[in-house]
Simulated scan of single mutants.
Amino acid sequence: MKYLYIVRHAKSDWPADTKDFDRPLSARGMRDAPKMAAHLLSMGVRIDKFISSPAKRAIATCKYFAEAYHNNDIEAVDKLYMAAPEDFTDTILQIGDRHDHVALFSHNNGLTYFVNALTSENIGHVPTCGVAAFRVHTGSWSDFVNAEKEFLFFYYPKMLA
């Protein structure tokens, strides 16, 4: 059994003369990311691998989660920046099978499209620092496409207030 946590980066800022890729987290994002990570930990969620878009706001969000989990196993994957749904699938198919609990950090709109394609739940829009979780009924990430995906939960920061 594999577990997949899909995380949209936390709220970001857009300072003048800053490229999209280089946008940092806002003060709210810096509050929400550790809060969401702590919430998952309190639920007993395990994460043994962190995979992120290399964009500054996604990596920063990922680092907050990795710090909470005392795990520095972070991999930056270029195709998760402005990813289309198939980019998520391609990334998942490359995950090593020694990792059973994986978190992917990326951006909208592709992230929301991908999450909604995995479930019949009415998730709609994934807000910043939203987390959707799935149990993937397989022993190998390479079987992800054909494996049964079971929706577990969907949380976002305003639900935790």
Score class of each variant (00 low, 15 high):
Asp13Ala: 13
Asp17Trp: 10
Asp17Ser: 15
Thr18Leu: 02
Asp20Gly: 07
Asp20Thr: 04
Phe21Tyr: 15
Arg23Phe: 09
Arg23Glu: 10
Arg23Thr: 10
Arg23Met: 10
Leu25Asn: 01
Leu25Thr: 05
Met30Leu: 14
Arg31Ser: 14
Arg31Thr: 15
Arg31Glu: 15
Arg31Trp: 11
Arg31Val: 15
Asp32Thr: 04
Ala33Ile: 07
Ala33Val: 09
Pro34Cys: 11
Lys35Ile: 10
Lys35Asp: 07
Ala37Ser: 06
Ala37Asp: 04
Leu41Pro: 07
Leu41Phe: 04
Ser42Leu: 08
Arg46Phe: 08
Lys49Gln: 12
Lys49Asp: 00
Phe50Lys: 01
Ile51Val: 15
Ile51Thr: 00
Ile51Gln: 00
Pro54Met: 11
Pro54His: 12
Ala55Tyr: 01
Ala55Met: 10
Ala55Cys: 14
Lys56Ala: 13
Arg57Glu: 09
Arg57Asn: 10
Ala58Glu: 05
Thr61Lys: 02
Thr61Asp: 04
Thr61Gly: 03
Cys62Arg: 00
Lys63Trp: 05
Lys63Asn: 08
Ala66Ile: 06
Ala66Lys: 04
Glu67Val: 12
Ala68Glu: 15
Tyr69Thr: 06
Tyr69Ala: 06
His70Val: 15
Asn71Arg: 07
Asn71Gln: 09
Asn72Trp: 10
Asp73Thr: 13
Asp73Gln: 14
Ile74Ala: 07
Ile74Pro: 03
Ile74Tyr: 04
Glu75Thr: 15
Asp78Tyr: 10
Lys79Thr: 13
Tyr81His: 09
Ala83Ser: 13
Ala84Glu: 13
Pro85Phe: 01
Glu86Asp: 13
Asp90Ala: 15
Thr91Phe: 02
Thr91Gln: 00
Ile92Gln: 04
Leu93Pro: 04
Gln94His: 11
Ile95Gly: 02
Ile95Trp: 02
Asp97Tyr: 07
Asp97Gly: 07
His99Val: 09
His99Ile: 07
His99Glu: 10
Asp100Gly: 13
Phe105Asp: 03
Phe105Met: 02
His107Gln: 08
Leu111Asn: 02
Thr112Asn: 01
Tyr113Asp: 15
Tyr113Pro: 03
Val115Phe: 00
Asn116Asp: 11
Asn116Pro: 00
Ala117Tyr: 09
Ala117Pro: 05
Leu118Ser: 04
Thr119Arg: 07
Thr119Phe: 01
Ser120Cys: 11
Ser120Arg: 12
Glu121Phe: 09
Asn122Leu: 12
Gly124Val: 12
Val126Thr: 07
Pro127Ser: 09
Pro127Arg: 08
Thr128Ser: 08
Thr128Met: 03
Thr128Ile: 06
Gly130Ala: 11
Val131Asp: 00
Ala133Gln: 02
Phe134Leu: 07
Arg135Leu: 11
Arg135Ser: 12
Arg135Cys: 11
Val136Ser: 02
Val136Leu: 05
Thr138Met: 04
Thr138Ala: 12
Gly139Gln: 12
Ser140Pro: 05
Ser142Asp: 10
Ser142Val: 13
Ser142Leu: 11
Phe144Cys: 06
Val145Asn: 09
Val145Gln: 09
Val145Arg: 09
